[in-house]
């Protein structure tokens, strides 16, 4: 009798707790998880690219990144960046910057173009120290910044001691 009562009480308490937590569990499952994640880890790129943008807003679009989804070696990851632009004297891409999310030095390289470039595209090879996102940032002649991101899975870091 006594044990039975204790069991029922325990079950009731347990059920009550689950019932009360249920909406909260549902909510944290999806949308708020992202919000919480953003609050803990805000988008790092605007801060990383501050030396280039000077705090100007970065819009997404017009920039296309071509890089392998999986780079098994972070020592040398090929990347091509293409920017939609007429490349005329009035409207051209001034510079393309590659920014890494988690390399020890986030600014990988900046490429300065001119209207004579004809095509706003560069191809190079970069180092990545772990799986991360890479941002390509383009500054247009009108002073606006456009960007795109690509995630690259790196199975061997560029920051291990080689040779």
């Amino acid at each position: 009798m006594n044990i039975n009562f204790a069991r029922r009480l325990f079950s009731a308490l347990l059920l009550g707790t689950v019932a009360r937590c249920w909406p909260w569990l549902l909510a944290t499952g999806s949308a708020t998880a992202h919000a919480a994640d953003d609050a803990v880890n805000p988008d790092p790129f605007p801060q990383l690219a501050r030396a280039i943008t000077g705090g100007a807003p970065i819009r997404s679009g017009r920039v296309f990144i071509d890089t392998p989804r999986l780079a098994d070696n972070g020592h040398s990851v090929p990347i091509t960046v293409n920017v939609e632009s007429a490349m005329t004297a009035q409207d051209f891409v001034r510079r393309i910057t590659l920014v890494s999310e988690s390399n020890p030095r986030p600014l990988i390289a900046t490429f300065h173009l001119t209207p004579k470039s004809g095509r706003a595209e560069i191809t190079t090879r970069i180092r990545l120290n772990k799986t991360q996102r890479v941002m390509a940032l383009a500054e247009l002649s009108d002073g606006t910044f456009w960007s795109s991101r690509a995630e690259v899975i790196v199975t061997e870091s560029a920051c291990l001691d080689a040779d």
């Binding site: 030095r105 986030p106 600014l107 900046t110 490429f111 173009l113 004579k116 470039s117 190079t124």
Partner: peptide, 23 residues
């Protein structure tokens, strides 16, 4: 005339290679 410039850091792979375009 300068047609291209690259400012590079340690994030560039060894034996840096760059391709660009010009008219």
């Amino acid at each position: 005339d300068i047609i291209f410039r690259a400012d590079m850091g340690s994030g560039m792979a060894a034996n840096p290679s760059v391709q660009f375009y010009f008219v």
